[in-house]
Write a protein that binds this DNA or RNA. Structure first.
Lengths: 221, 221
DNA sequence: AAGTATTTTACGGGAATCCGTAATTGGGAG
DNA sequence: CTCCCAATTACGGATTCCCGTAAAATACTT
């Protein structure tokens, strides 16, 4: 069993439950952080003391409050931690279920397990930890299909910015000017319209309004 | 202290933490339900046995899965439970922070406390329970402003349906036909357009796309 | 019942969108 | 350099949205 585990999770209630689970599994040392910044500090400290963490269990979204933070999300946290201690194992424990997000986590951030918070997530978390011990990856069964998803490959960052500006109320008319101002290419009204048309086609949206509603629901913007 | 408490919460991890909290407070009997339907059943059973619950702690959103349910949300659950056992105390324990939602819960559903899931929510939950014992209501400090919010009064259910259909890709053109078909009045294109214009004004949206993005972010649709 | 106020409906013009097609540009390949 | 291909840009027409005004219907007073 892993000896030293770090939990990065803002909700106290979930922290309590995960901690209890790890104790039941026989983990000797458990620490938790309610802010990503604190998680980084604890990780560095452990490395300095030559007693590094074996495993990180991290949430993805951390609610903002009065405190100023440099790392605001689980995605950033994992990336930062992998730079400091690349060999650490990572399990994401989150409510997120968008294929696009999860696939990126496995592909880009090289996480080892993904457990979706839900009605049986604690037993899944146990299974995930045991699976990792055998050197394999884990994903919640209900999300297994996520790794086959192709959205991530076909929608690029240009599409995302375009959608974001649309959602922020920028009209197609103004988009051309805005993109030129921001040095984003292509930026002609025509090409922008073409992209939007492609996106509408891809997401089977009836119109631009529908498109924004769909992509918001998918968590793309 | 309350003797018998029912928890309605789908996430197992949070169930564990809330249960532990109640035990620490000295609650004698704690039951939990991961589905709203089960919560109703347990409540009815307890009433029949003449050992009713004193307090309900409920989440608002319950994720859908394979199981067919009749009650899908915490709002519906609370309404249903109040009809069966009007004197029961209710605390909502949820991540929801939209003033519109919370104000409605206090005003319409007559809940007694609202605790927002967060970094210190477990201690808030304890305080909430103790506050209720004195016959007072509780709301998480960071949401105290929610009760002053006026959105709830100015946006009605007609606006919500309108926005929902817009988000589902129905064009204003088609809306008239659709509303007539659904027996929703007013349904003339002109009035519908007027409503949309009012909403755009209210939410300071540049266009319909922007409007949907904003209202989606606010959790109104 | 008549008058007033409010809401709903009707209509129309200008702006923005949607969605084609055609022209232009900017690399690689030969 | 020239050809070719793909991507970008230009342009235009049909449609839809946007927003005002005026008429009609409904509700509310007296």
């Amino acid at each position: 069993m892993y000896k030293k585990v770090l939990i990065a999770e803002d909700f106290d209630s979930i922290n309590i439950a995960v901690k209890q689970t790890l104790e039941n599994l026989g983990v000797q040392e458990i620490q938790y952080a309610k802010y990503c910044d604190d998680a980084i500090l604890k990780l560095k400290k452990a490395l300095q003391d030559d007693q590094p963490f074996d495993l990180l269990i991290s949430d993805l979204s951390f609610v903002e409050d009065y405190r100023e933070v440099t790392i605001a999300s689980g995605e950033e946290l994992i990336q930062a931690i992998k730079e400091i201690q690349p060999e650490i194992k990572v399990i994401v424990y989150s409510v997120e279920d968008k294929p696009y997000i999860i696939k990126t986590l496995f592909d880009e951030a090289q996480i080892n397990g993904y457990v979706k918070k839900g009605r049986n997530s604690i037993s899944q978390l146990k299974t995930a930890i045991e699976t990792l011990l055998y050197g394999k990856t884990f994903i919640s069964p209900e999300l297994a299909h996520a790794l086959q998803d192709k959205t991530g490959k076909e929608i690029d960052s240009y599409d995302i910015t375009l959608l974001s500006h649309l959602a922020n109320g920028v009209a197609i008319e103004e988009m051309e000017t805005l993109f030129k101002h921001l040095n984003i290419t292509p930026n002609s009204k025509s090409t922008i319209e073409k992209r939007v048309a492609k996106l509408k086609d891809y997401f089977k949206a009836n119109n631009n309004i529908h498109l924004i509603a769909i992509t918001k629901d998918l968590g793309i913007i």
